[in-house]
Every structure is written in structure tokens, then in C-alpha cells.
Simulated scan of single mutants.
Amino acid sequence: MRVLKSPPQAPKANTHSERLNGTPRRELLDRTLILNERHLRRTLTRYLEHYIGHRPHRALSQLCPSQAEAGPPRPIDLAEHRVHRTAVLGGLINEYQIAS
């Protein structure tokens, strides 16, 4: 890990770094007791996998970054399917998929 200083006279640079640091802090670290560095790394790695692969983003029209390039998925009638919930990080976050 290395420290990056924000450039002088760039007011938007600070907002981006605050967002980058604040989202995992609010969604994960404020609700988790971290035991040691290994636990922190494992927890942040799993959160990053969730953030990129499953979490919807408003800037991407409620798509996750892994879906953004492929476009929105086709609509599914949930009355005809069962939904499977997967607990992530001990139930702190849940991911939902159509059960096969």
C-alpha cells in the first residue's frame, strides 16, 4: 500500500478519494470487527469481488461493473422462478440469483 497525495488546486480529487474510502467503510468496516491484517485483507478482497461482480451502481443504470459492457439483462418473470440468496461476509451482504 502506498500513500498518494491529492494534487493542489484540484477540488474534485478529494471527493473521489472520499467516495473510494467511504463506501467500503460505511458498507463493511463500520459493521465488522476486524481481528488482524489477514482478516482485513480477506474481508476486503471478498467485498471487492462483491462490489465489482454483483453490486448495482447508479452511474451504470443499476448494473454491476461486470454487466456494464454486456448491457442490461433481459427481464425475467420472478413468479415463474425461484430466487436463491447467498450470504456474503457472514450475512452482512446478500446476493440474489435465479435458482436453477
Rank of each mutant, 00 (worst) to 15 (best):
M1Q: 01
M1K: 00
M1T: 00
R2E: 10
V3I: 14
V3C: 03
V3Q: 03
V3H: 10
L4A: 12
K5F: 12
K5C: 09
S6V: 12
P7V: 13
P7H: 08
Q9P: 00
A10K: 14
A10M: 11
K12E: 15
K12A: 13
A13H: 10
A13K: 04
N14M: 13
T15S: 13
T15F: 06
H16G: 10
S17E: 08
S17L: 15
S17C: 14
R19H: 10
R19D: 01
N21H: 12
N21C: 12
N21F: 12
G22M: 08
T23K: 01
R25N: 05
E27F: 02
L28G: 03
D30M: 08
I34N: 01
N36T: 03
H39E: 03
L40E: 00
L40I: 01
R41Q: 12
R42A: 14
R42V: 10
R42F: 01
R42E: 15
T43H: 01
R46G: 00
R46P: 00
E49A: 13
E49M: 04
H50R: 02
Y51D: 11
G53F: 02
H54W: 04
H57Y: 10
R58V: 03
L60R: 08
L60A: 10
S61A: 14
S61V: 05
L63G: 04
L63D: 06
C64A: 15
P65N: 11
P65W: 09
Q67F: 02
A68C: 04
E69V: 08
A70D: 08
G71E: 07
R74Y: 04
P75R: 03
I76N: 01
I76Y: 02
I76V: 15
I76M: 02
I76P: 01
L78D: 09
L78V: 15
L78M: 11
L78A: 09
E80F: 01
E80S: 10
R82N: 12
R82E: 14
V83A: 08
H84R: 15
R85Q: 13
R85I: 12
R85N: 01
T86E: 14
A87T: 06
V88Q: 11
L89Y: 04
G90T: 07
G90P: 04
I93L: 15
N94E: 15
E95R: 14
E95I: 13
Y96D: 04
Y96K: 05
Q97R: 15
I98M: 10
I98K: 09
A99F: 09
S100V: 07
